[in-house]
Computed example of a mutant assay.
Amino acid sequence: MPEEKHLQHGPLGENCAHLCIDMQNIFAGDTEWHTPWMERVLPFVERLAEARPERTIFTRFIPAQHPGEGEGTWGRYYERWRTMTLDALPPGSIDLVPSLARLVPPAEVVDKHVYSPWTEPGLHERLQARRIDTLVISGTETDVCVLAAVLGAVDLGYRIVLPTDALCSSSDEAHDALLTVYRGRFGQQIETVSTEEILRAWR
C-alpha cells in the first residue's frame, strides 16, 4: 500500500504537537540495541523538531537499574538484556542524541520505563491542557515503542500523522509490515506521509 501524497484529513494547526520517540544514544551508539538506520532518519526527525521545538515532546526509554529488576516479565527481560541496564551502560547512554538534546528547552522530555509513553502519569493531561488533538509521531522503533505510542494515542482519540521517512527500526521486515498495518487497518485514525508534506501542511 503506497504512502499517501497528502494528508487525508486536512492541514495541521495549533492543535498539533510532535511526539518524538526514544531518539537516544542507547539506540544510536554501539550497543546491543543499536538501530542501524537511525542515522539515516535523524535529519528528518531534526527537521520536524527544529520547525516546532516548542511543540515537540521527546520521550526517553529508561532501562532497569540492574538485571532482573522490573515487574513481571520485565524482570526476565532485563536478565536477557543485562548489558543494557543502567548499571552496565556508560554515562550518557540514555540521553537524547546531541542534535535533538540542544532543542530542550523549549522542547520537553518525558521519561518512560516501558514501551508506551501513556503509562507514565501526565503526558495525556499535558497535551489536553494545551488542546492538542493531533500528534505527529516520529522516532524508533517503528514496531516496538513507536507502535506502543501510536496505539495508545489512537485509543485516546488523537489524530495520528506518521512521517514515514522519520521512523526507523532494527528490523526492516517488521518496519515495512507495521507501515502496511498502519495504512491498511487504521486508515481512519493514522495518516502516513513524508516529512516534507507534514512541514508543508503544518501552519
Rank of each mutant, 00 (worst) to 15 (best):
T73Q: 10
L147R: 15
W202N: 02
K5L: 11
E54Q: 14
S194Q: 10
L179F: 13
S171L: 12
F27H: 13
W118E: 10
V114Q: 11
V161T: 03
E69S: 08
V193D: 05
S170F: 10
M84T: 01
P43T: 13
R159M: 13
E14G: 14
A129N: 11
Q65K: 10
L89Q: 02
G13Y: 09
L100C: 09
D133G: 14
G157W: 05
H6S: 14
V144E: 11
E108C: 00
I198P: 00
T56V: 00
P11T: 10
R185I: 06
A201N: 03
S169P: 01
I190W: 10
T73F: 11
S138H: 00
L162S: 05
G92K: 04
L156Y: 03
R183L: 12
E46L: 14
T35E: 12
Q24T: 00
V97R: 00
R80W: 11
P98K: 02
A153K: 01
V193S: 11
Q65C: 01
T134P: 03
V181K: 08
Y182G: 04
R40D: 12
M1K: 11
E39A: 15
Q188G: 11
S116I: 15
E39C: 01
I94R: 08
A101H: 05
W202M: 05
V161G: 05
P11R: 04
G152I: 06
T134H: 04
I94L: 14
E14R: 13
T73E: 11
P98F: 08
V181C: 08
P106E: 14
C168R: 03
G184N: 14
T192R: 12
D176W: 05
L127M: 15
E69R: 04
A51P: 00
M1C: 09
P91N: 07
C20T: 07
R185C: 09
E71A: 10
P98S: 14
I137Q: 01
M38H: 07
N15C: 12
L135W: 06
E3F: 07
A153N: 05
L89Y: 01
V144F: 11
L135S: 03
I160W: 09
A101E: 15
F186S: 07
H6C: 07
K5P: 01
A49H: 00
A28I: 06
L100Q: 04
I190Y: 12
N15H: 14
W202T: 00
Y78C: 07
